[in-house]
Design a protein around this nucleic acid. Sequence first.
DNA 1: TGGAAATAGTTTATTTTTAAACAGTTCAGT
DNA 2: ACTGAACTGTTTAAAAATAAACTATTTCCA
Lengths: 162, 162
Amino acid sequence: MAETGKLVQDETEAAGISLGALTSTAGLMLRIAQLTSFDNFFALYPDGAIRISEFTVLMAVSENPGIRQGVLADILKVKWSNMTMLVRTLEDQGLIARHVPRSDRRAVVLTVTEEGKRQIAASRDMIDRLDREALSMLTDDEHAQLIALTRKIAGWPEKGGL
Amino acid sequence: MAETGKLVQDETEAAGISLGALTSTAGLMLRIAQLTSFDNFFALYPDGAIRISEFTVLMAVSENPGIRQGVLADILKVKWSNMTMLVRTLEDQGLIARHVPRSDRRAVVLTVTEEGKRQIAASRDMIDRLDREALSMLTDDEHAQLIALTRKIAGWPEKGGL
DNA sequence: TGGAAATAGTTTATTTTTAAACAGTTCAGT
DNA sequence: ACTGAACTGTTTAAAAATAAACTATTTCCA
């Protein structure tokens, strides 16, 4: 066997280890926090449910009907080539529709189908719950702080469009 | 051409876009913040300098001489197979030494060489500076908050070993 | 108007990452 | 002591992400 496993909050067996100054390196800490969050999340995530990347795109399109897929890719920080594949999968599943506008025939704009709306309604609460659960080591205040900070890093204002 | 580019704080051209409830999804926000931080960091990072993953391992070993590489991998959240490669590269560069202890001949314990110490001394300040610069949209208070939160997520106590 | 340059998205090739199989060592129970 | 299970690390094969080349439009401006 390889890789020990131990999901959700490992006590890292070997006590007495200190990362020293590294724990003040925000980039590293952000990375480790993100990986921890994802590990915890996926340990809870039910098999067969919609992929979280697909759900995210679905939600984003639902909030911004007619958005171009390149713009969406930039916002979500995914590469255009990955967005092409992601969006095609969602189209194959009948969850979103792609439309080439007459005004610019290079572009592809997206909308959520009725089926897509049903999918959102069906999975939204569960995903929110697991997302919070994955960071259950934080108090509600801390959780709110984290969201405020990460929004600021992403360059998104508190309220309204970006 | 593909990929627009625009490093450091993009205003995302298309105004009026809102991610709605997604901005309260901590997992997603953590991911986007981390990618933003890294993009900014690498935009500043000088070519030819030690790779940041290697520097991190070097620092961690320096703080914990004789640490087993598997333990280190778990703490830094890198896969064992990647740690094998990372550590070999560092050894090839003469920055760390690998040693198999008599007490457990399966294990490999690590120490930093003199050359490794010089490398740390040479790059440490620059890396700290760029790391802070990559998150220059945060005030010092916010930056400190972020580190406290991410440490808590990682499961590391404020002070001392983990 | 008539290209050259820029934009939007896709496809392909390359690199990187992850997972799985593997080999050697130690441990636990008999 | 012996055997099966667990541990530590490495190698390999598979999957995923990234970068680069490409097609089709649109824009700019001489």
